[in-house]
Design a protein around this nucleic acid. Sequence first.
DNA 1: CTGTTAGCGCGTTCAC
DNA 2: GTGAACGCGCTAACAG
Lengths: 340, 340
Amino acid sequence: MTNAVGGKSIPSHVTLADVARAAGVSVATASKALNGRAQVRESTRVKVQEAAAALAFTPNFFAQALNSPRTGTIGMVTSDLDNRFVLPILLGAEDAFGSGSLSVLLADARDDVLREHLHLQTLLTRRVDGLLIVGRTTNPRPPVALMADVPVVYVYAPSTDPADASFTPDNVQAGRLAAEHLIATGRTRIALVNGEVSYAAAQDRAAGVNQALQAAGLQLVGGRSLFGQWGEGWGRDCARLLVRGGEPVDAIIGGSDHIARGILDALRDERISVPDDVAVIGFDNWDLLVRESRPTLTSVDMSLEQLGRAAAQHLVDAIGGAPSPGVVAGPVRLVVRDSA
Amino acid sequence: MTNAVGGKSIPSHVTLADVARAAGVSVATASKALNGRAQVRESTRVKVQEAAAALAFTPNFFAQALNSPRTGTIGMVTSDLDNRFVLPILLGAEDAFGSGSLSVLLADARDDVLREHLHLQTLLTRRVDGLLIVGRTTNPRPPVALMADVPVVYVYAPSTDPADASFTPDNVQAGRLAAEHLIATGRTRIALVNGEVSYAAAQDRAAGVNQALQAAGLQLVGGRSLFGQWGEGWGRDCARLLVRGGEPVDAIIGGSDHIARGILDALRDERISVPDDVAVIGFDNWDLLVRESRPTLTSVDMSLEQLGRAAAQHLVDAIGGAPSPGVVAGPVRLVVRDSA
DNA sequence: CTGTTAGCGCGTTCAC
DNA sequence: GTGAACGCGCTAACAG
């Protein structure tokens, strides 16, 4: 569209010089006019703006970035993209950034330290303004080691360094909410069929449940949380044992919706009415499992999208100089359906 | 680390000039040495490389990009990040790019044409080398309208323009595989409880099933595919009606694993043995649904990660000048478990 | 208010 | 083989 003679190697876009020429001013003036600098007569500003619009001028991103402290890019590093929990987080984050006209460079580390380091290098080379580190679980993780001082925010998996900014769902509160709801609706013989013992999420939810029970002068059926696996098979097996066992049970908390789903199925097999005989609650409020189960499943929503948005928002603030809030426990909420 | 006097606004990194100075050569020579240009004596090349390593020199990305035809960045535009089908695709793509040292700019359009256009503008401004457009369903979508000629590859949702490069799972073949497996194992009274009629995936799977049945001189129980919803409730309702209805049934294909799961549950309620009395097959091979159902569910895997990888790989090739392959139907495979 | 000059970091001529 | 000089597109500092 511009260069008449030479075959430039780069498909030469409309440049600021073109705009300046068209508007009959110098490049510097054109720059000032378009960037809203003060020292430009209004009439010339308009003239330049019109010329720019007419030529469909877009400033060259790299030329701008070359000597500007900000690039308008943030890096998002996931440990495991193939994880249903990261999706809503990504969505929330992408949303928060997108509306602030920040672009997101995505990198997946495959839960591998080496890959993570490599990707971080690449991202730093591209001079990202900030980094969002998305974990695979809520287990704390060692902080990233960077040679540059770029704001870093951890989501889902918090950093082990409490001074870092971390946003992680409040699983303790989630456990508390579940137990309190059961207690409030008159249940006293409550069991907890939990997920894998190595997961902080499982531990935290158990802690919350125990807190609520103790506050009510109760304790778990069997005395403790039953750690096992995250799947429905574990939920089925435990539920069957519980209702067939000696101790009476009037409520079972599943460590996840998936586990809870197994519990529901087992109770159904055993001809035990939910919620009349036994109430059931899950965690995650995963709609696919929760809405069409029989009965529909009461569950604690971890508000992951909101978590991602909050983390992203803080990253933006941190880029602007805001101090680290430390570890932030994202709010959760109970969604009551028919099972409890 | 460099500038002694002035407080530059940009945290001045190690620059090529620093390396050159340290190595006692000119900037031009340093450049050639590091970029493997021929006209450099081996000894000086080593000298420069050592200096670069010692100073931990990293070329300024923007300076390089400023007058280079490639930026080593591709744009990935999703219609709906909050979709479990896009994850494996993203993973495959990110993987294919990452290993080729391409960075990925992610943008989510929220299934909104306007947002998509905006994001595309931004991506083009950043001079991405290519675009990967990830759809929400397999329904064909109108091609993106760009003012620049950047290679574009569509994944999952193909472009309506057959000349565009599109990678979409072969749902017809998936339907065929499911039906053929049932026929091969002696089933003749086969029903298809399908998903929403507006989905190409549902239509295509039905077409594949019908092809296989016709080839065997059979037809669906009830004469046609039962379109409805994607959830398990629909699966349960249909299964109940089917087994209670007049026509005998010895196999039910669910339009998705979710539907199939509902079918399994209903058959269990009805005390119908799977697979002895009725065989069940689903689609998607979604491990969470498939591995712990009772019995475990035979399903057709859409190989989405592979699809994403193939699309990404083609985008890389297209950037290198390779011609469009048109619409590519990604391979699928049957995973046999206990239900059929 | 406007234009000239300088420089960001790098790659690439083209002389030496 | 090597280095000085130029340009990529833009913004900031200084003159006019």
